[in-house]
Design a protein around this nucleic acid. Structure first.
Length: 221
DNA sequence: TGCCAGGCCGGGT
DNA sequence: ACCCGGCATGGC
């Protein structure tokens, strides 16, 4: 029974490795996350929730212009200033509040020090992040992986859609199921998870958008 | 012109 | 335990 499951996992693991090789071969390294600091990664992770990255870039440019891309500066900025700064990323009142919520968390729990925060072990830090209002599973994993370089797999809408279209997961699979799917079958490698998720976003943007059917020129076909 | 984008929360079944 | 509406700008 356990042996059978292991074989199954191994088959899936091979499949996931093949997909990775195809994507990397087709698109090359993606050099993620596009940011100049770990703190900027976190800000971007919050701003990009259900939002096109281009709109986030504009918001980050405004924050940089106003010297708000540091923990202390962000923490001291009035909510209205934040909201107005990140307007282009949509849902701006909500996101300003979420940036503040993270900022408060960082100050209260980690003395406003990112390096200190990232000294915590991954599992407990993940739970801490999930307790912050506005940080859900994907955002928490993105922060852990791309800002803290922890080996945790980030599952997003593209990941789910690509896997569904290629019938590699059942339609009822939840976030945790898919994350476990990768982490239990692939090596626990931060570099691999980093590249893999970035490649999913790349192939998703090009070939797996919402109402676009499977396309013959997709490298996974 | 609508639909969609690298989600998350709160309230309702 | 799910399901849904709200949040909101900018690009195609």
């Amino acid at each position: 029974m356990a042996v059978q499951r292991d074989l199954e996992n191994n088959k899936i693991g091979n499949t996931l490795n093949k997909i990775y090789d195809k994507l990397l071969g087709a698109f090359g390294p993606q050099e993620w996350w596009p940011a100049e600091s770990g703190f900027e990664v976190i800000v971007g992770a919050i701003l990009t929730q259900n939002t096109a990255w281009g709109n986030v870039e504009k918001a980050i440019a405004v924050l940089r212009e106003r010297n708000l891309l540091t923990p202390s500066a962000l923490h001291e900025a009035p909510l209205e200033v934040l909201a107005e700064s990140v307007r282009s990323s949509g849902c701006y009142n909500l996101k300003a509040a979420r940036l503040k919520a993270f900022s408060d968390f960082l100050n209260c729990r980690h003395g406003g020090d990112l390096d200190e925060m990232f000294r915590r072990d991954g599992e407990s830090l993940r739970r801490e992040l999930l307790s912050v209002k506005g940080i859900g599973e994907e955002t928490a994993d993105a922060i852990l992986l791309y800002a803290g370089r922890y080996p945790t797999f980030v599952v997003d809408a593209y990941t789910r859609r690509v896997l569904l279209r290629h019938q590699l997961i059942p339609s009822h699979a939840g976030y945790g199921d898919i994350r476990h799917f990768f982490m239990s079958t692939l090596a626990r490698d931060e570099g691999l998870y980093n590249e893999y998720h970035a490649l999913f976003v790349k192939v998703g943007k090009e070939f797996c958008r919402r109402r676009v059917p499977l396309c013959g020129s997709c490298p996974l076909m």
